[in-house]
């Protein structure tokens, strides 16, 4: 394996973080091509938590907690570049709005959600109240909605807002434990989460509010992503990426890297940006940029 950025072949891949590296698994249809799995990036001194992918510029973005920062690199081969390095304590989840060209992240120590342009400029705090342990965050660029989960042991919840933090609402608060993973499938309009407390994988249509269980008895989910019929999550007990068929509610496959240590964030690196309906553009800057220190 090469320790710097290794260009990915065309096609759709899963990208996930494991102990100082970002690895990829090529997808063939929805199946993991496990023998094609290898490291994309080696950052041996870092602890990478969140991973996100920008399908437009084909860049991978990640959060890192040893020297709290957000960095990015081209998956076609390129140097990792830090884009945000100041005023962060524990950046965890990261999400990209490929249409709006912005990124969103959670900070579990500062207890807030922030947004910035993909180059790190125009940074702004959009949520800074009623957060205890915010972790997973995702965007639905087509509808202009943001979703995040807070695993606060006293009152876990899944929330939504517009991309400027306005119209904030709690979507789920009952029968949650540790909702670590969150993903949104634009084709089916389903928001799905993986819970390390209730050990369930569940979905809901955020507009309708109907909730359905996909799978019970999962072990310890951390990160989560979706592609077509499958949900893929990383598991802290199994040290593996697990594929689950959303429609049959059955585990489809598992990939366990050679190195046995915790897996963190996971993202789908699409061959092409997902096509959707005409987007509702809701800028996070609608009420003017503010300084994150203010």
């Amino acid at each position: 394996p090469r320790p710097d950025v290794d260009a990915l072949p065309p096609g759709t891949h899963l990208l996930f973080a494991q102990s100082g590296r970002i690895e990829h698994i090529p997808l063939e249809g929805y199946d993991m091509k496990k023998d094609g799995a290898k490291a994309v990036l080696h950052l041996p001194e870092k602890v990478i938590i969140g991973v996100a992918y920008d399908c437009v510029e084909k860049m991978v973005y990640w959060t890192e907690i040893t020297s709290p920062s957000i960095s990015r690199a081209s998956i076609q081969g390129g140097e990792p570049t830090a884009i945000i390095r100041s005023d962060m304590d524990s950046p965890e989840g990261i999400a990209i709005d490929h249409l709006g060209r912005t990124m969103f992240w959670t900070d579990s120590v500062k207890d807030r959600i922030e947004v910035a342009s993909l180059d790190g400029s125009q940074r702004r705090v959009i949520v800074n109240s009623d957060l205890v342990n915010p972790r997973a965050i995702i965007t639905d660029p087509t509808s202009g909605n943001l979703y995040w989960a807070d695993w606060n042991r006293d009152a876990p919840k899944i929330e939504t807002s517009y991309m400027d933090g306005s119209n904030r609402r709690v979507l789920v608060k009952d029968d949650l434990g540790l909702p670590n993973g969150l993903t949104y499938d634009s084709q089916s309009s389903l928001l799905c989460w993986a819970d390390a407390g209730t050990h369930k994988l569940e979905c809901m249509n955020p507009a309708r509010g109907d909730r359905s269980k996909v799978l019970e008895g999962i072990q310890y989910p951390f990160g989560m992503t979706t592609f077509g019929k499958n949900i893929y999550y990383t598991d802290w007990r199994r040290d593996a990426v697990v594929a689950v068929d959303r429609y049959t509610g059955r585990e489809a496959d598992e990939f366990q890297p050679q190195k046995r240590t915790k897996l963190y964030g996971i993202a789908t690196a699409y061959a092409q940006c997902p096509s959707g309906n005409k987007p509702v553009v809701r800028s996070p800057y609608s009420s003017g940029p503010t300084n994150p220190d203010s």
Partner: peptide, 26 residues
């Protein structure tokens, strides 16, 4: 590392990580 010619360990023993496996996992 092709550019810097730096040598990095890639499969450190269980529980360790880092360029020379000198660090502990999170």
């Amino acid at each position: 590392v092709p550019k810097t010619r730096e040598v990095v360990c890639t499969n450190c023993p269980a529980g360790t990580t880092g360029k020379r496996c000198e660090l502990c996992d999170d």
